[in-house]
Design a protein around this nucleic acid. Sequence first.
DNA 1: GAGCACTGC
Length: 852
Amino acid sequence: MKINGKFPAWKKKKRKDNDGKRIKNGTKIVSINGISRQNGGQEPNLAMLSVKKKKKLRKKKINGTATIQMKEELMNSTVQMTNGVLTKKTNIELKQIITASSPPKTTQSMTPKSINTNSTPISKKPNVATPSKNTEPKPKNSPREDATYEKFIRPQLPIDVVEQQLMHELASQETLIVIGETGSGKSTQVPQLCVRAGIAEKGLIAVTEPRRVAAVSLASRVAVEMGTDLGGAVGYHVRFENVTSHRTKIEYMTDGIVLRKALVSPLLDKYSTVIIDEAHERSLHSDVLMCILRKCQAQRRGTDNPLRLIIMSATLQADKFQAYFDNAKVVLVSGRTFPIEVHHVNPKINKSFSATDYVYNTVICVKHVHLTEPKGHDILVFLTGSEEIEAVAYQLAELNGSLPREADFILPVPLYAALRPEKQREAFQKTPQGARKVIISTNIAETSVTIPGIRVVIDSGKVKTKRFEASNRIDVLKVHNVSKAQAKQRAGRAGRDAPGKCYRLYTREDFQKFDAENMPEILRCNLSATFLELMKLGMKNPHRLGWIDPPESQNIDAALLELTSLGAIRPINSDRSKFVLTEMGDVFCMYPLSPEHARILFQAQKEGCIMEAIKIVAAMQTDALFSGGSDSKSDAEVERVRRKFETREGDHITLLKIVLTTNDFFDQLNAKTEADARYNKSNKSLEREYNEAIRKFCNDNMINEQHLKTGSMIEDQLKQIAIEQNVKFSTCGADFSKIRKAIAVGLFLNSCEYDRQEDRYRLMINPAITVKIHPSSALSRSKPAYIVFSELMKTNDLYALQVTLIDADWVRPLITEHKKIRKNHLAETAQRIQQIVKVEPKAKKQKLNATF
DNA sequence: GAGCACTGC
């Protein structure tokens, strides 16, 4: 929320809200409890000014504490890394930012996890944290660590009740399904039970998590419980960070890392047990893992190193998992959340209620809750996107002017992933005296972060999701209703610390119409990258693969067509039902990239510009490097800086320019810092100056520091892989046509030709589809004859994002080839469907088991 | 001249 300076960008322009009503320059008739009132954007009243002043004061307070916390973190890490070279320090800082933006890690706080609460008040009372048996011996490490362990006493957890049963099942079952709600302790205790049951002697216990924060914080927590240091008996492995050793017995990992490991060692024989946590989330990676591990288990069955699988889930999909894993046993663990009172909108009472204008409803609801709920109970609001969130935050701040004198002050705090880390941190600050914090969030607060002190949840019932349209290869970003499970999850966020309330801005009848569960990711994304990995593991026919929820046939074919056209796979039988990796496809697998992006690198090697290609492709993996429009800059200044990097050749070359500029800056900065170090400057002041210089550079050039660092780490990772692949490093200098050709070849499926009559671009592989260049692109005004884009996004129109000027001759042969393959492909698909229809169900099942 | 949720290797 902007306090000083100009109004937020959304306010300056006319915009349509979801009901189609125009909100003009912030002026909107707000009717609260029947009393209409006009908040004029042009005439800020006195109450409004005093609000700003008040807020400014409170802001100051908050920032004060933040600085102190950050300083402490900085000092801790400096102690650990004083002998590091200064260039390494960027890494240290990144780590700090990651930890700082994750939920506070105390011995009491648990990882962000899924919750499942009933929609009616739950009578279960949470266990009081009582001192219980300390199951593990005390550590004998450094004195500092000893102090930490002595303080630690694990509270009793619901899972303790079924400990004996779990131990028994672990000893006898090959696959086990553990269903446990939030707070049951399954994520921390089940791996430890495995160790105690003696399973870990044959091999490591792997625990997979869908998010990095979860893997890291769970590992830290379990390390404390087991009385070992992190990276000792308990470790974690996420991208860019491997904190494990030869002593490690329990390894927390992100599911993507386990998939990568499976590509290198398909039997995963280092691990005796793999525990898949949060399986109910149905992330792409966990679905693929379950598919692979089932195969893996079959192959290791009967050997002296069988694979044990534990599927952990928070919701009722047990039946589905049970059927998938051959009637595996299910152990139920009760959860430990506080009772939550759920209120739905009742149209009979709330006469003015309109189901579509949820932004307006939100403001009304916050006001109602604010005036009726006890002071000090913070509110968490779920909305769909940044624009909405900023709008509500603004209106709530204005609401303060009309509150009764005795009422507390409303402190709106936006929270979404694209927000700068320091802004995100405000959501975790303690609420100032005399205020009520209202966090207005996207679904980031559903699972990824846990905010303390929330007692009331307001749920719009909406979520923005991306779905892949296989027929046109288009990503569609749209607002949808949440699922029932998601609504429960959101409600559960009110019951973390104490009994809570949830207000749903939809009727009970609407809720009944919602889907039961979230749509699994595998059903709504491009499958080409996944299939490439599975083919590396020996899969030949994706149509015959046993998924929990099989993707649509059309979607599977689209991925096969894409991979074939990119030259990553080729058919091995005449009816094109079986495929195998080509040599090039094998190389693609080594890179953590989509097949298209890997193809750019492959081509760049031929063209002699691999260095530049790696920089560009790495930058393409992160969110926008250039973050124009940040609040303290004027439009003219944003334009000026944007022009500095813009090139006529397109947005990919612009990315390269930004990366090269920052590289130069870092070279100079490092040289200067090294020189300063010779004059005996203290480490601390050097580091401060170093970080300040980076901050200033990023601010001046409107570069997102976080994304820049992520990009640079990806660049290092890609370089490392290229070295392992014996790639000859080459650079094209100022001859950008080489790199443009490599990009064109990699993204040839996205090449377009300008249609002057329509003033739009026609997709060369499918001229029926016309698109517009997104206005954020450097090429949106120059309109060259031929372009490729990175991504096509359907919002209000069909927009091409990240566009580069190309030569049509570079892509024409590839497009001709693609059309040929597609023609055959369609014919073969029709033929195959005929065959499948003929197959008897029984025979079909046998075949399914025989092929992978 | 638009305005984009969230993860992950």
